[in-house]
Simulated scan of single mutants.
Amino acid sequence: MNVEHEVKLLVEEIQRLGTKNADGQTTVKFGVLFSDDRCANIFEALVGTLKAAKKRKVVSYQAELLLQGVHDDVEVVLLKE
């Protein structure tokens, strides 16, 4: 799959699983994304897709690399709907 398409799918999944914060941005915890069955079926490398989306300023999160278990409570913030 191409990266742009995967980032678009990621945005859709964050919107599906996330909630709005006080600033009106959609957020979801990394652990929720990682453990979701639908996301597991869509993304071969969720962490890589998140990294590509962060580089494109589509999402934001406070970690260099997200690891399952260690970073389950890290909020992934959707910057572009």
Results as ranks from 00 to 15, higher is better:
Gln68Pro: 11
Asp37Glu: 13
Val32Phe: 05
Val3Leu: 07
Gly48Phe: 04
Ala22Ile: 12
Glu13Trp: 00
Glu64Asn: 08
Val11Tyr: 06
Leu46His: 03
Lys55His: 12
Gln15Tyr: 08
Leu66Cys: 04
Arg16Pro: 01
Gln15Ser: 08
Asn41Gln: 13
Lys29Met: 11
Cys39Asp: 02
Phe43His: 07
Leu50Ala: 10
Ala22Glu: 15
Leu9Glu: 12
His71Cys: 02
Thr26Ala: 07
Leu66Lys: 09
Val59Ser: 13
Lys20Arg: 15
Ser35Pro: 05
Gln25Gly: 02
Glu6Lys: 07
Ala63Ile: 00
Ser60Phe: 10
Asp72Tyr: 04
Met1Phe: 03
Ala22Cys: 04
Val32Thr: 14
Asp72Arg: 01
Ala53Ile: 04
Gly48Lys: 04
Val74Thr: 13
Ser35Met: 12
Glu75Arg: 06
Val59Pro: 10
Met1Leu: 05
Lys55Pro: 03
Asn21Pro: 03
Lys80His: 08
Gly18Asn: 03
Asp72Lys: 05
Val7His: 06
Ala52Gln: 09
Asn21Glu: 03
Lys54His: 01
Asp37Val: 01
Leu9Arg: 12
Leu9Asn: 14
Leu79Tyr: 02
Ala52Thr: 04
Val70Leu: 07
Ala22Tyr: 09
Lys29Cys: 02
Val32Cys: 09
His71Ile: 00
Asp72Asn: 11
Phe30Gly: 13
Ala22Ser: 15
Leu78Asp: 03
Gln15Val: 11
His71Gly: 00
Val70Glu: 10
Val59Lys: 12
Leu33Lys: 06
Leu65Met: 08
Asn41Asp: 13
His5Cys: 03
Leu65Gly: 00
Ala53Ser: 09
Asn41Arg: 15
Glu75Asn: 13
Thr49Asp: 07
Lys80Thr: 13
Thr27Arg: 15
Leu79Glu: 10
Gln25Pro: 00
Glu12Asp: 13
Lys29Gln: 14
Asn41Trp: 12
Lys8His: 07
Ile42Tyr: 11
Gly48Val: 05
Val77Cys: 09
Lys80Val: 15
Lys57Gly: 01
Ala45Met: 07
Glu6Ile: 00
Phe43Gln: 06
Leu67Ser: 10
Leu17Phe: 07
Val3His: 08
Lys54Gln: 10
Val76Gly: 12
Leu78Pro: 06
Val3Tyr: 06
Val70Phe: 09
Ile42Val: 13
His71Phe: 01
Gln15Thr: 10
Asp73Trp: 01
Asn41Glu: 14
Glu12Phe: 10
Phe34Ser: 13
Phe34Val: 11
Val77Gln: 09
His5Leu: 15
Gln68Thr: 01
Arg38Ile: 12
Arg56Phe: 07
Gly24Ile: 02
Leu65Ser: 05
Arg16Gln: 03
Leu67Lys: 10
Gly31Lys: 13
Val3Phe: 01
Leu65Asp: 10
Lys51Met: 03
Lys80Phe: 04
Glu4Met: 04
Lys54Val: 02
Lys20Asn: 07
Arg56Tyr: 06
Phe43Gly: 05
Asn2Arg: 02
Glu81His: 08
Gly48Ala: 06
Gln15Ile: 14
Asp37Arg: 07
Gly48Ser: 07
Gly18Lys: 04
Met1Gly: 14
Ile42Met: 10
Gln62Pro: 13
Thr26Asp: 08
Asn2Lys: 08
Gly18Arg: 06
Lys20Val: 06
Thr49Ile: 14
Ala45Tyr: 09
